[in-house]
């Protein structure tokens, strides 16, 4: 894909160039203000991640799931086998001891994501700040990423959608998954819908933050208590970490 910072405009723009510049200072008193972060974009110095403490996660609670569905407009069609799920609650029972655990599973935002490796067009991609996304503009719907993902994190849009939300474009024939509420991150909210809901309505089991910043809450907790990754044996270094599994 083209990464040039200026779009290749036709001659027309240069003819109307003077007017284009004037367009910046619009009607009296109204100015275009762009936030400072907009120009620079996501930084590779940052790596966003989640820490989930399964000791605090209650089996009956699905506050994070409900919040995610609301945030991204995942209304579903009442067909569980084909409806999208960005995040799901998984209940575990140890086969030997019978001990139980409950935890949310979503896209693990791997450092070495298999979905990105297998995608033929490069639609599966990892942003500089570690968020794994689907570029639905060039996704052809081959579903190879769904075959490759070890976490079953992805969904295919099996039917026509209407009334999508402005910040979560999604449509028939493309693959989608948890995007770590990228619209919130780019807006500077510093949290995701699931984490917000877990803190408000759940067991405060989830922390969002910058894994690369040693002073962030998530990094301090990771340093103090350690953590586990799901299927750490694949060595994908996921950005979503768990305690208590």
């Amino acid at each position: 894909m083209s990464n040039e910072s200026k779009p290749d405009l036709s001659r027309r723009q240069f003819l109307g160039g003077a007017a284009a510049v004037a367009g910046l200072a619009v009607a009296p008193g109204v100015f275009l203000v762009e936030s400072a972060s907009a120009a620079t974009g996501a930084s590779s110095k940052v790596r966003w991640g989640l820490l989930i403490d399964t000791n605090l996660c209650d089996s009956g609670c699905d506050a994070c799931v409900t919040a995610c569905n609301k945030e991204h407009g995942l209304n579903g069609h009442g067909r569980p086998a084909t409806d999208a799920q960005y995040i799901r609650k998984v209940d575990l029972k140890d086969r030997k001891t019978g001990a139980t655990r409950s935890l949310p599973v979503m896209c693990q935002h791997c450092e070495h994501p298999p979905c990105v490796d297998v995608c033929p067009t490069g639609a599966s991609m990892k942003r500089p700040d570690g968020i794994v996304l689907v570029d639905k503009h060039i996704c052809i719907g081959c579903r190879y990423c769904m075959m490759a993902c070890p976490y079953k994190a992805r969904s295919f849009v099996h039917e026509d959608l209407t009334d999508q939300l402005p910040h979560t474009p999604r449509g028939k024939g493309t693959v989608e998954s948890c995007n770590l509420c990228v619209h919130r991150i780019d807006r500077g909210d510093g949290t995701t819908a699931c984490v917000e809901a877990c803190n408000r309505d759940g067991g405060s089991a989830m922390v969002f933050g910058d894994l690369n910043d040693p002073n962030s809450e998530i990094s301090r907790r990771l340093a103090e208590f350690g953590s586990a990754a799901i299927r750490a044996d694949f060595k994908l270094n996921p950005g979503v970490r768990y305690r208590g599994i």
């Binding site: 200026k6 907009a38 996501a42 942003r127 570029d135």
Partner: peptide, 17 residues
């Protein structure tokens, strides 16, 4: 062209305007 450029910058690099 403006939209396509914006789309690639915003989605792939997080550089939103």
């Amino acid at each position: 062209k403006l939209l396509k450029h914006e789309r690639n910058q915003a989605l792939r690099l997080g550089a939103r305007t």
